[in-house]
């Protein structure tokens, strides 16, 4: 049981951090960013290149990943999403654009980083073993701790910084924020950059545990959407709750249903369908959006 809970918490912390970026972008711009998983993968590859290939310290690699993904996010918002949002009020326009960006990034990842699975040296050796009741490598514990640290830092930033307040105002009511003097375009770009940066940071954290390959983008996006649906789209606390719930469900399911093959996600999807039929806005979302 201890192992299941520990696995669930570890997975949940990662998932929550992934979902945060996605829900932030949705809240600010009403954009379903299907390329979120690809941003995560690029983050993993940037860390791989700087830490694994160039041999620079991991902290430097993680910082460089955060900066480069923030830049990439800003560029995507300014040159791709902003013109489309300006010219088209149809929501499917941004959805199609996001899907197109996902394919484009996949192709770029393949060209730049190749088809192989990549990994980096362990950042911490050793395994915590409590009489085989709980086994957890120290690097996983560290990554879990870092994920919780980044989640806390993000919440504090959103709560107390000027930029965070502006972003929250934008998420609550775009028009009202504009009328109150918030530079909507600038803060939309900052918000998108922040979301991309969060995705990149998770990629940079997890490349030390799971490695990275070009195929991880799509499935990561799907899981992120599931978490956002569970917690409630556009709600920060909902994304964290969704991540933790999905992580725990996955851990419990893989243990309980191991005898019956790969049915864990079948059960999770079925449960999610029933849940959304009862509460379509998710745990913490509002029915009116």
């Amino acid at each position: 049981m201890e192992q299941i809970i520990a696995n669930g918490l570890y997975l949940g912390a990662q998932y929550a951090l992934i979902a945060l970026g996605l829900t932030l972008i949705f809240a600010l711009m009403n954009v379903l960013n299907f390329a979120h998983g690809q941003l995560y993968v690029i983050g993993g590859f940037v860390t791989y290149t700087i830490y694994g290939q160039l041999g620079l310290p991991y902290v430097v690699a993680l910082a460089a990943t955060a900066i480069s993904l923030a830049l990439l996010g800003g560029i995507i918002e300014k040159f791709l999403f902003r013109p489309v949002i300006r010219r088209s009020s149809r929501e499917e326009s941004t959805m199609l654009l996001a899907a197109g960006i996902a394919f484009l990034l996949d192709a770029i990842i393949l060209l730049v980083f190749g088809e192989k699975q990549r990994g980096v040296p362990k950042i911490l050796n050793g395994v915590l073993n409590l009489d085989f009741r709980l086994i957890m490598p120290y690097d996983r514990i560290l990554i879990c701790g870092l994920a919780i640290f980044f989640i806390t830092a993000f919440i504090l930033y959103m709560q107390y910084s000027k930029t965070g307040r502006a972003l929250r105002a934008l998420a609550q009511d775009r028009t009202a924020a504009y009328l109150m003097g918030v530079d909507v375009e600038r803060y939309s770009m900052i918000g998108f950059a922040l979301g991309a940066m969060l995705a990149g940071i998770v990629g940079g954290l997890l490349v030390t545990i799971t490695g990275v390959n070009l195929g991880m983008g799509g499935p990561t996006s799907i899981k992120a959407f599931m978490m956002v649906m569970i917690g409630g789209a556009g709600v920060i606390s909902g994304a964290i709750a969704g991540g933790l719930i999905l992580g725990m469900m996955e851990s419990v399911g893989l243990s309980v249903f191991s005898e019956y093959g790969d049915v864990t996600y079948l059960v999770i999807f079925a449960t999610l369908m029933v849940f959304l039929a009862i509460r379509p806005q998710g745990l913490m979302g509002k029915p009116w959006g």
Partner: peptide, 19 residues
Amino acid sequence: DSVTYQVDTTDFTPVITPV
């Protein structure tokens, strides 16, 4: 021989524990 995993699995610790 019954444990399987999704092709897009990234973290195998929970999957492999029962095996």
